[in-house]
Design a protein around this nucleic acid. Structure first.
Lengths: 113, 113
DNA sequence: TATCGATATGCGTGGCGATGCATAACGATG
DNA sequence: CATCGTTATGCATCGCCACGCATATCGATA
């Protein structure tokens, strides 16, 4: 049967240019893609706008091609959008993350008792 | 061939009593088992004795049966030793950790490019 | 051209992991 | 019973992550 133990973990993907994409960043990217707004995405995740903005800046700086485009002013006050690179990154991460979830439950069942 | 991306991760095992055992704690346990001394183990890992002692206390408190026995005074000034439970915990963790390493490299090869 | 909502960014703060210092207690052994 | 090396534990601190406040900027639109 299932073990009394549970196996947990975190994983992240590093690119050759130093990009790091993990759980939190991917969630942010997905929310941005969903809502078209950085402030709304941050709020939806219970994350401060200040910090979300820093993450976006870091990701864009450390990546060869930017993952997110931000524009201020205009209708609605501004806009946030994923680039094709950004969407690719999300998709790639989600793929390996799904495998990871399978791995974790699979390992938990191997544990004693 | 191999991808330009690399997949990294951390994993830990939680017991029903709230025990948490992960990379750092296991390394400490192994060093204790190896050296028979908490202060020596901490030093060998470049970890402060203060913190290593706290970790041991936490692990023992949160586990049903203690993982480490500590004794002060006497020949050599004191002694640290793993219980059978402690050794089991290490062995179990190492087993799933080995699988985890395989998983990570395996996933990295699935990534684009 | 005034408004409005979002982006842009500095500055101070609080929690947490981890360190370092200092001091006490312990107990086998000489 | 003095010594010695380790365990035992308080307290102050440092760095990093993340938050919160405050303010400036931008640009479509009414």
């Amino acid at each position: 049967m299932t073990s009394q133990f549970t196996v947990h973990g975190r994983l992240w993907i590093e690119g050759p240019d130093g990009t790091i994409i993990g759980h939190g960043r991917v969630e942010l990217l997905e929310k941005i893609d969903d809502l078209g707004s950085l402030s709304a995405a941050a709020a939806a995740l219970g994350m401060s706008y200040r910090y979300a903005w820093k993450l976006v800046k870091l990701m864009n700086e450390h990546s060869d091609k930017p993952l997110i485009t931000l524009s201020s002013g205009g209708r609605g006050g501004g806009h946030a959008e994923l680039t094709a690179t950004g969407k690719d990154a999300v998709a790639t991460y989600r793929l390996t993350d799904r495998e990871f979830e399978r791995f974790l439950t699979e390992q938990a069942e191997k544990l004693p008792r």
